[in-house]
Amino acid sequence: MLGIQEFMDFSEIYEEHFDRIYAYICCRIGLDGIAEDLAAQVFQKALARSGQYDPARGNIAQWLFGIARNEINYHLRLSALRHFVPLDLFSEALAAKEKPVIDGLSEQQEKTELMAALATLNARERDLITLKFYSEMNNREIAKLSGLSESNVGTILSRTMEKLRQIFAEVG
């Protein structure tokens, strides 16, 4: 059981990082109720293993995003085992993209458009670009987390941003 001070410290970490972790999860798996469950699992694991955090191996954000990434990958592997196609989670976003924009982009429409853009990327591109967007890690740190080489991460990110630029150029 954590002491009060430790729990308060964790609460501060939670307040600081929740939004970005949740956004990362949503962008990886789509706008679905599962995102909430996964976010809860990430912070439950972080709370349970708070004593295992080693500052020498990276900052808190890297540690949390590492847990989140593992949880998402585990969820996606389980989904695949159950003959469930994860990209279907984005189907709603892809369908909504076809609808005409009537009176500017509302918050929901903006979200739908961005999620539809992410749905066109493959799993690795979506993983790296969302890590880049939300974790504030540099390419070296992303490479360390993902197990790819730093140059490979840079190449994939450049290619992915090029795709997104084209998508938004077509839309806009």
Binding site: D19, A23, A39
Partner: peptide, 20 residues
């Protein structure tokens, strides 16, 4: 991307906080 609020009301955040 960073301006999107996936949990604008903070309800999910509060629920998970209570669970924690």
């Amino acid at each position: 991307f960073r301006q999107i609020e996936f949990d604008p009301q903070g309800r999910i955040k509060n629920r998970i906080r209570l669970n924690l």
